[in-house]
Amino acid sequence: MAVKTVIEALREGLWEEMKRDERVIVLGEDIGIQGGVFRLTDGFVQEFGEERVIDTPLAESLIVGAAIGAAMNGLKPVAEIQFADFIYPAVDQIINEAAKIRYRSTSNYSCPIVVRAPYGGGIHGGLYHSQSLEALFSHIAGLKVVAPSTPYDAKGLIKAAVRDVDPVIFLEHKKTYRLIKGEVPEGDYVVPLGKADVKRQGKNITVVAYGLMLHYSLEAAEAVSRDGIDVEVVDLRTLRPLDKETLLSSVKKTGKVIIVHEDSKFGGFGAELSATIAEEAFDYLDGPIVRVTAPDVPAMPYSPPLEDYCMPSPEKIAGAIRQLAAY
């Protein structure tokens, strides 16, 4: 099987979907001749033409708003927001429109769009090229939120997102794009939305993560295994709908859980996970639910010591695991 990076896998998945279904279009800033600032759509305009690969004006609300309109008229638009940090002008379109169209019209209309957005820090992007926005969108009923971590999942999930009949926010951790490599099968396969994956089996502690943090958690699990702590790592893959079954069965097995995300803590996605675990697996817990997150600052600062301080790392995760194991 070919070894690919996350971005290669995503590109392949999207490419195959455009080949498979001519209703799929992509639109966003610099995605044409430039192939996107990360080159995810490299070669797309040459293959699929300017009608299906649309370089939009610099207007995020329009990018999502036009995608919504095109979806209501039978196309399958995949909108790219260049960096998740710049999605805010489109949030009205995403939350007030995309998420509510099916509901408000009792399915007279639906809104099968995908909004792709590179997110996440650790790449010296500073305040406005590092943000993690999963909590904002996961809060919204009517949206699905996906955050792949491995190349295999990335390809399978982007395909599932394109084929879904409801709006999907597809969050791609930009540091994983070229850092993370893995085996990716040729041709068509789908990783269904709403299914988590246990990436490492273990007995003592469950670590829940997604995106880049999944890899940091695996590293941490490896490190503490030398001290005899056996960690199970759950990769959520889809944040909404949440695969409670996989999450809770792991927590019930280990009795201890650490949630890792690089978004700040207060009201972060970890809060929902914590509440869910507390509500539905309280009797199984042998220790407090622990969160390893960025501190509560508005965004990730640029200067390396500041950025390092904010980013969760394998070391910080390992530290939290050791502490909880000793509880």
């Binding site: 329009l62 708003g65 309109g69 095109a70 638009p77 169209i101 209309y109």
Partner: peptide, 25 residues
């Protein structure tokens, strides 16, 4: 008759997108 909502002006990009799809098709 397309689904619409209370926030002012959000429907204008939708109209552009619907027209875009008609053009593409």
């Amino acid at each position: 008759l397309v689904s619409t909502s209370s926030p002012i002006a959000v429907q204008l990009p939708h109209a552009a997108g619907i027209a875009l799809a008609s053009k593409i098709k």
